[in-house]
């Protein structure tokens, strides 16, 4: 059976905020709200957890730093010693720009890649984009949808909940793969 979603439309941000809070309190974790513009504080009332992206960045940065130190130490002071102007074979002073650059490079790449991964990108289409009301989420309404993949999902309670929260046009949409 295909996935399903129960969708409801909202036009007022305050009502939407309240609804998001109630859905979160009802125990749903797999629901989403599609908005035409970023709504500050919505992630908080939806109970979205803080991203783990900083840890990915930090880990990649530390890896870059270690790589740079290891690379310069091994090439300069172990494998192929060259005396240049009497400088030491390895020193943190001339090494620091390279350590810095590799740290930044790996951090930037991991942050970019990690963001794509965590956001589920690239995604060419949305399974529910054929729904006329859902498309209006890009224009003038907020669309709340509770997905059937949520472990608490049941068609009737989800519909009932959204109606109770003053959503208009509460409907069941079948996913189109």
């Amino acid at each position: 059976m295909n996935n399903q979603a129960v969708m409801g439309n909202f036009t007022d941000v305050n009502v939407l905020m309240h609804a998001a809070e109630k859905i979160r309190d009802a125990g749903y974790t797999d629901f989403d709200i599609f908005t035409p513009y970023p709504v500050h504080g919505l992630d908080k009332v939806m109970g979205v957890k803080r991203t783990i992206l900083p840890y990915i960045s930090f880990g990649a940065g530390a890896t870059g730093l270690m790589t740079a130190i290891g690379l310069m130490y091994w090439t300069g002071a172990v494998d192929y010693k060259l005396s240049i102007g009497g400088k030491p074979f390895f020193s943190a002073f001339f090494g620091l720009p390279i350590m810095f650059e590799l740290t930044i490079l790996l951090t930037a790449l991991a942050t970019f890649g990690g963001l794509w991964y965590l956001c589920g990108l690239p995604r060419w289409y949305n399974e529910y984009q054929h729904d006329e009301g859902f498309r209006r989420a890009q224009d003038d309404i907020f669309v709340v949808s509770i997905f059937s993949t949520d472990k608490r999902f049941s068609l009737d309670t989800a519909k009932h909940l959204l109606t109770e929260l003053h959503a208009s046009d509460v409907r069941v949409v079948d996913a189109q793969v």
Partner: peptide, 8 residues
């Protein structure tokens, strides 16, 4: 520091 250290 580094530019001065390096050019010496």
């Amino acid at each position: 520091y580094m530019l001065i250290w390096y050019s010496n």
